[in-house]
Structure formats: C-alpha cells, structure tokens
Amino acid sequence: MNQDVLVRAEQLYRYYGEHCAVKDVSFDVRRGEVLGLLGPNGAGKSTTMQILTGNLAPSSGQVWINGIDLLDKPKQAKHGLGYLPEDPPLYRELAVKEYLSLCARLNRIPQNQQASAVEMVIERCGLKDVTYRLIGNLSKGYQQRVGIAQAIIHSPAVIILDEPTVGLDPIQIREIRDLIRQLAQEHSVILSTHILPEVQAICDRVQIINQGKLVLTDTIVGLSQRMQTTSILIKLDNPPTKEMLMSLKGIDSIDIERDGRIRLCYGPEQDPVDELVYRSVNEGWRLRELTPERHTLEEIFVAITQTQDSQEIVS
C-alpha cells in the first residue's frame, strides 16, 4: 500500500437484516488530506464512520488504517485512529485536565509522557482557560474542543470527526473549523457532515453518499468547476425575438421570468456576454441588467441525490 494512503476502504457492505445501509463503498484518504463525507440524513454516513473506526463490523469488505488491516489487527490499527463521535464521549463530572489525563492512560501513552501529551492537546485545542473547570459546566463549543482533544491526544495518523460543529454558534463553528485545518497539517482527517458550507471551508476532497452508495467523489477544485457560471439573467428595455437571442454563440436555451427578465443558458466555456453586450449596443436592445448565475454546492448536492433517488425508484 502507498505510504501516503493512511485509510483505505474496499467494497464495504453493511446489512441490518435485509436493509443494506452501506453498498460497495471504496475510497482512499491520503496523508495531510481533509476528506468530507457528505450526505442527507440516513444516507449511511455514520454507519460508514463506525465501520472505519472499528466500532461496527462490515458485513463484507476491508479497511486498512495506516497499512494495518482493521479486522485482522484491530488493536494495532485503532492505535492510529482518533475518533470524535457525534455525541462526544465526555465525563461531565470530571475537570478537563482530569479527563484528558484519563484519556492518555486509556490510550496507553507511556506514563512519563502523559503529562506532556495532556499539555500539548490543551494548547492545541485552546483549552488553557478551562483546564480546571468541570466539563459539564462548559459551553457546547468547549465540549467539542475537549472531544477533539481526546481524539488526538495519542497523535494518531488518522482523525475521524462525526458532525464536529453540530449545535455550535457561528463563532464556535469558525473556531472548530480553524482547529480542524490546523490538525490536517499533521494528520489525515475524515469529516462527516451535512452542512454544505463546512465542506467548502475546510475539505480538500468531498464524497457524497446517498442510500448507502458513493454517488460523487471530487476535489474542491473540481466542485468549483461544477459550480461555474452556466447561465445569466438579463433585462432588456427593447428585447429582440427569441430567435435572435438564440443566435448568440453558445446559447442552449432561453427562459422568460415573470418579471420580464431573460435567463440565457449556455454551454461550458461558451460565455456569450461579450457578443451580447456588443449586439445590445449595435442593435438597440438597451441592456439594463446582466447577472451571472452560479451553481451552488447545495444545487449540485440536491441534483445528484435526487437523480439517484429517482433511479432507485425506477429500478
């Protein structure tokens, strides 16, 4: 296995009775990469995460963590994992430092290194101001920080985070996202979320899972290209006929909005704006408004998942 590949999943299936929650899921995660696992509720994200962390056995398929087979050598493989479930495994009656000291022992960090490991994660996760406070008295944001601290205290190669910003306020969300980006400098991170802006903010690559299947794998750069402008809205005081507008280079279709604005849809790399402006001036169309339209990640997500849903219904 390539040394830069820290997680490899091959042909994962998971059945609950006759229901198949995960269907033939395969992917790699490389060193220093943040992979976003995206999907609607019930799509199979959490089941996939539980399989990757060894908390749930696949019905079939294999997982390697840092080159170690998770099923054959679970203890050795899990040593290279840090995991933050959606509900952080916190002992609310303990102070932050007490809890992290316990986590250091549970992760079998040598006794003479435990204190330095605790101080390291307190520093990295911004917990200095709450070191001696009870976890149960902390805000949701700080509790998430403590949850991340326990996941990285043993310096694992791979960190798996399930919905790390759910329930946080905007400031806390920004802080946790910054922390995840910092962690990605030294670890590989798998991030499960249904919050679309989160994917764009912190991930290098995204995989969309729907009905247990991976329906899209792409880089953020690739997604950005999918989101490129492919239509413009215009308003003309003296609009020409549809036939004249269709004669513009690259125009595929035209829609008339209720407010009189016109949507011009065109093919990739066929931007008609220059010709539109030129002809508007020379032919007296009197252009009043021109607004490029971009596909949002939400539109791409909905289009992909709804298309797959309809295919499942047909089949």
Rank of each mutant, 00 (worst) to 15 (best):
E198K: 10
G267V: 05
A151S: 12
Q50G: 13
D162I: 01
S192R: 01
E283V: 00
V29L: 15
I171C: 09
G44F: 04
Q200N: 14
P239V: 04
G42Y: 07
K75S: 14
V7S: 03
Y99I: 00
F301C: 08
A157E: 14
L90H: 07
G54M: 03
N55S: 12
D259Y: 06
G250C: 06
G250S: 03
N137C: 05
Q11E: 14
V25P: 01
G126Q: 05
V22H: 02
K23W: 11
H295D: 14
N66V: 00
S59D: 07
P292K: 00
L138W: 06
T131C: 11
V189F: 04
T291P: 10
D72R: 14
A184D: 10
C20Q: 12
C265A: 14
G32A: 04
A104R: 00
N2G: 11
R263H: 02
K242Y: 02
M227V: 09
A9D: 05
V314M: 10
Q207R: 10
K97A: 14
R279F: 00
S310Q: 13
I190T: 05
D162C: 06
T53G: 02
Q182E: 15
G136R: 00
L52M: 03
R177E: 12
D72I: 05
I65F: 00
Q228S: 14
I65A: 00
Y15D: 12
G61D: 08
E283M: 02
V215K: 03
R8M: 04
S59Q: 08
T296M: 06
V277C: 05
S224C: 12
I176M: 01
E289W: 03
E186H: 15
L236N: 04
L216F: 09
R124N: 06
T241C: 02
R108G: 07
Y266G: 06
E298W: 01
V7M: 10
I304Q: 06
L196F: 04
I304E: 12
R14K: 15
C203S: 10
E198T: 12
K242C: 09
S280W: 05
L297S: 09
D169L: 08
A77W: 01
Y99R: 01
K45D: 08
Y142F: 14
R30K: 15
T291Y: 10
N66W: 00
Q150P: 13
I251G: 06
L248Y: 02
G42F: 04
C265E: 11
V146T: 07
E257W: 01
S26Q: 11
